[in-house]
């Protein structure tokens, strides 16, 4: 199939997606059976038009069009410019095949290097998400339910201020901290806790810490706002009925804060799976994070179609993973934004 024919399709696809979403929304509205005043009546003509135009441009120009053109690109072969649109420019799965087998046409060996980087990225991102949740939940609960307002402000400031430092600088600071002759090793050696310097960076401990730290705020804020909306009397009622503290969290707080937990976990997972700067700076020499692999497809191999395919594999896996988690926790996408 000639790709020139498909440019109209590429342009029409976003519109089709928008129409599809609109239809889904309409059906959902009908099923819920609530009749609300019209969009323009609620917002006024000027604001309503602005909202539609602004959101429309944002969705179409900044999200859908680039993504769709990347998707289209991922199915095309790498060709010198002169051959583009020529007879060899046809749709192919070669880029996806390369991810699996390390060769466009030979399927006898797995592409171990890339597959391992991919699964390592997904696994570590899950672990980072879990670690961030365990770290943030007690803090968010404290801020939302038990701390005095002054303490909450202080904690918020302490949480936000470090993020004034940019991501790259933060990652390098951690690198210095964790280096073979870095602060941590020097301190541990001085204390006599270890005899040999620990290779924190080679063991990827630096990477894990860096990733966990980079997206901490994106976990804590959804958790905080979800837990804050839980009336304190619910906790007291559970306590009064005889629940020990861990049951109060399991039965009352966590189910109530589930939308916040889901959105915090989604954000951290997506962003750490897609992180580029932190893994580039902090990952050890033996391990390979997936996003630098994608980056290399584009700028080292100059194979944009393959890079697009790799990026899409990562995106689809993340989306599938998030949807699976939502399904397991019986949440809908709409509830998460509550």
């Amino acid at each position: 199939m000639n790709s020139a024919l498909l440019h109209p399709v590429v342009l029409l696809l976003p519109i089709a997606v928008i129409v599809a979403f609109w239809l889904i929304a309409a059906v959902e509205r009908r099923l819920r059976g609530t009749v609300q005043p019209g969009f323009f009546r609620r917002n006024g003509a000027a604001v309503g038009t602005y909202l539609i135009v602004a959101v429309g441009i944002w969705m179409l120009l900044l999200i859908l069009l680039p993504q769709v053109s990347m998707l289209e690109l991922s199915f095309r072969p790498k060709l010198p410019p002169v051959q583009m649109g020529g007879p060899r420019d046809m749709y192919t799965l070669a880029n996806y095949r390369y991810f699996l087998f390390g060769s466009p046409d030979d399927a006898s060996h797995w592409n171990v290097l890339h597959l391992r980087a991919f699964f390592l990225t997904i696994t570590v991102s899950i672990l980072v998400t879990g670690f961030d949740f365990l770290l943030c939940y007690p803090l968010a609960f404290h801020m939302a339910q038990t701390a005095r307002p002054g303490r909450v402000r202080l904690l918020l400031l302490a949480l936000i201020a470090p993020y004034w430092v940019n991501e790259v600088l933060r990652a390098f600071a951690l690198r210095i901290l964790f280096a073979g002759s870095g602060l941590l090793n020097t301190a541990l050696l001085g204390l006599g806790a270890i005899a040999q310097p620990v290779d924190f960076l080679g063991l990827n401990i630096g990477l894990y810490v860096g990733l966990s730290y980079a997206y901490l705020l994106l976990m804590i804020f959804p958790l905080y706002s979800a837990i804050e909306s839980l009336p304190h009397e619910q906790i007291e009622a559970a306590r009064d009925l005889g629940a020990p503290w861990w049951r109060i969290h399991r039965d009352i707080v966590v189910p109530f804060a589930k939308p916040g937990i889901a959105s915090g976990c989604t954000l951290v997972f997506m962003l750490s799976a897609g992180a580029l700067a932190t893994p580039l700076i902090l990952s050890g020499p033996r391990s390979l994070w997936f996003t630098p692999v994608v980056y290399d497809r584009f700028y080292q191999a100059f194979n944009w179609p393959q890079g697009a395919a790799y990026a899409f594999i990562l995106l689809l896996t993340c989306v599938a993973f998030v949807l699976m988690v939502l399904r397991l926790s019986r949440l809908s996408l709409g509830e998460m934004t509550r």
Partner: peptide, 26 residues
């Protein structure tokens, strides 16, 4: 003792029976 709150503080994510049975469950 058992306290009935001014706001009642029923658990919104549980059914009526689960609410009533919560103290027994714990």
């Amino acid at each position: 003792t058992a306290l009935i709150f001014q706001s009642l503080a029923l658990f919104p994510m549980m059914t009526v029976a689960e609410n009533i049975g919560y103290g027994l469950r714990v």
